[in-house]
Simulated scan of single mutants.
Amino acid sequence: MSFPGKKTYPGTGTFPASGAATELVVRTDWAPVPRIEVNFTQLDSAVKTATIYRVSDGRTMRVRGGVKVSALGAVAVIDYEAPNGVPSSYRAEMFSDVDATVSLGFTQSPIVTLEFEGTCIHQPLDPTLAVRVDALAGTAVGLVRKFNGDAVLPEGARVPTWIGGPRQGLTGVPFVFLTTSFVDADKLQSVLGTYEQSQVGVMCIRTPPPMRIPRTFFAGNFEMSEDAINVHAGGEDIQFSFTADEVSPPAAGLVRPAVRRADLDAAFPTRAARDAAYLTRFYRDTDYSLAGSAG
């Protein structure tokens, strides 16, 4: 089976008394979005659970779906939020207990770069709700990062003392996006929910360099305006405009699984047939070709 846009980066990690191996698979197709498959194998038998981190774009973040996951010999996760156009590496913190309280250290990984054209917008809790859009002039201009606090003048002082917290994320970031089909326009609206299906009011926006916002930007606190450009003339170009604040993503432990139990049941007539098809549980759980088999 061939996979368009696939690049594999094998490597080795570090772990006490272990030769943990790492494989990063970069996929630039939109099935459902450009992503990086992260596989840590040959883990020591002492490892019971693991949490996977991405180090990229000046930040260390937990990978969605890779928090306190079972790691019996191997662990894998798909990073649907990997940034566009900047280097990324991954590390797994391993634990000797299922509650992830006793750390055994970290693995390491090669450095890879995911690159794709356009801007990807998707629902963090369901990457199948995604669309590719074009960023127009006016996007991410006039960037502002605030401090939350006050300048307080102590008694007898000539200048005030600043009392407050650290610098915050971006606020009031303007976005102007273009879709060129009704299908894509409907996809963008579905990221935030429909009449029948509610979604969390946060979008994951991944823009390419040199735009001066985080490559993985979580947008919240906004109202999206939809403006038809040429629909009156028979076209399908629609412009979407909104101003958003940078917010924290939904809890990283929440994610729509790539391969569900229902997909496995739909692909194999019996449990015996399923068990015979895979050498280990790791290979079964990472057979992403079965994703969506159950509809």
Rank of each mutant, 00 (worst) to 15 (best):
S2A: 08
P4T: 07
K6I: 15
K6T: 14
T8R: 14
G13M: 04
F15T: 03
F15Y: 09
T22C: 10
V25L: 05
D29Q: 07
D44F: 10
A46D: 08
G58A: 07
R62V: 15
V67R: 10
K68H: 08
S70G: 05
V77K: 04
Y80K: 03
E81Q: 11
E81P: 06
P83D: 12
N84Y: 12
G85F: 12
P87I: 12
S88I: 13
S88T: 14
S88C: 15
Y90F: 15
E93S: 11
M94N: 07
F95Q: 02
S103A: 08
T107V: 01
T107A: 03
P110Q: 04
V112R: 06
L114P: 07
Q123I: 02
D126E: 15
D126C: 14
A130I: 10
A130P: 14
V141M: 15
F147T: 01
N148T: 03
A151D: 02
P154M: 05
G156V: 05
G169L: 02
L170T: 02
P174W: 06
V176T: 15
L178T: 02
F182K: 05
A185T: 12
V191L: 02
L192I: 00
T194Q: 08
V200Q: 06
G201I: 03
I213M: 02
I213N: 00
I213T: 04
P214S: 14
R215Y: 13
T216I: 14
N221Y: 05
A228Q: 03
I229Q: 01
G235R: 00
S241P: 03
S241G: 02
S248W: 05
A251L: 11
R261Y: 09
R271T: 15
A272D: 15
A277T: 04
Y278M: 00
Y288S: 00
S289L: 12
